[in-house]
Simulated scan of single mutants.
Amino acid sequence: MKWSVDLGKRGITAIVGRNGCGKTTLAKALLTIPLGDTLASTSSEGIVGPDSWIRYEFGEQVFEFRFDPDLGTLSSRTPIPRHLKAIIGVELPVPHGDRFKAFQAIVEHDHDLRTALAIGQGAPRQELNDFLNRVYRTDRFTGLLEVRIRRRSFYCFRRPEDRYLREDHLSSGEYFLISVYRRIVSGVKFLFIDEIDISLDADAQARLSGELRLLCERHGVHLVFTTHSLALMSTLEKGEMIYMEREAHEVTLRQASYNYARTLMFGFKGCDWSCPRTPGHVLVAT
């Protein structure tokens, strides 16, 4: 697999394709940049061998991860600089994504959250409230409060009689979108989210791309996500969709239109413009 991406771009890009074509493998390869043991900790034993490698190119800088027989996984002799790690974020699907690991942190800060709300701390994060309200076509997120504890933001609703509703008490889709927003405003420049449509109803999926596009342009983020949702694909603009396809031992990525992708993925007839079957420039290779 070979792929290039503009880390300075603002906006969204969707990668679509059939199951097993390599979307999650790409996500794990990218997560290896900030977390070198990603493949060992998220994949089955033996997924890599002596012939496996990943090569990253950032301008003139090149970093290679090769198989280390002593570790049984890939490792690099040249450390990736901290400033490069800091601008890249990756969210894996269940059960390895950061949003699933965050549950324990929220529970551990339960007492701190109660105390902060009791003394009147917490204020609306207007941008997040508007984002959720527009995606779900409602106004019920207007009362969502942001509470800062040890330089970390938590979100909750204050309820009568000293009760409150934490973000992890919301539906899985609502909690996920809060997690996505948290990642977008975290300071990263490139964010990859695998299976972004999981837990979202079709109505929310149809509104998601437009809202994400606005957030990413505002915060200077290039968000790349994978999806199987026709509702989401149909709202993408020209140039925002990449079709991933696996043939024998090679994975290709090329620009595609909505009708082109749905024809290949679902067998629906109709294609409005053709795309060349050529791969992009090198960023990652297995």
Rank of each mutant, 00 (worst) to 15 (best):
E174F: 10
V188I: 15
R152S: 05
I198C: 12
L191H: 10
I198D: 13
D162F: 06
R163A: 15
Q205G: 06
V185L: 01
R151E: 15
L145M: 09
D203M: 05
V180Q: 03
D201N: 15
R163L: 13
S209A: 15
F176L: 12
D194L: 09
R148I: 04
L191M: 11
P160L: 06
V188F: 09
V147M: 09
E195G: 06
R207L: 03
I193G: 08
L191C: 08
R158Q: 13
G143V: 01
D203C: 01
S209E: 05
V147L: 14
G173M: 05
R207W: 01
D203W: 05
S172M: 07
R166C: 04
S171M: 07
R151Q: 15
I198E: 13
S199W: 05
Y164W: 12
S171G: 10
Y175T: 04
D139S: 13
R148G: 00
L144A: 07
L200H: 11
R159S: 11
R158W: 00
L177P: 03
I184A: 05
Y175D: 07
R137A: 00
G173A: 02
Y181W: 14
L177T: 06
S172T: 14
V180I: 15
H169Y: 01
V180F: 06
R151W: 03
E161V: 11
R182I: 10
L145S: 03
D203V: 10
R137S: 02
K189C: 08
F157Q: 09
F192S: 07
K189W: 00
R207F: 04
I193V: 14
D168V: 09
L170M: 15
I149P: 12
R163H: 13
F192C: 08
F192A: 11
D162N: 15
L170K: 11
R137E: 01
T138K: 10
L170V: 07
L165I: 12
G143Y: 13
V185D: 02
R137F: 00
L208D: 01
E161A: 14
E146Y: 00
R166S: 12
F154K: 03
R163N: 13
I178T: 13
I193R: 08
T138D: 10
L145N: 07
F141G: 05
H169R: 06
I196D: 02
V180H: 12
P160D: 01
L170I: 09
V188C: 15
R150Q: 13
R140Y: 09
L145F: 07
P160V: 14
S179V: 02
D201R: 06
L170R: 06
E174S: 06
Y164S: 10
P160Q: 04
I193W: 11
R150E: 12
R159P: 00
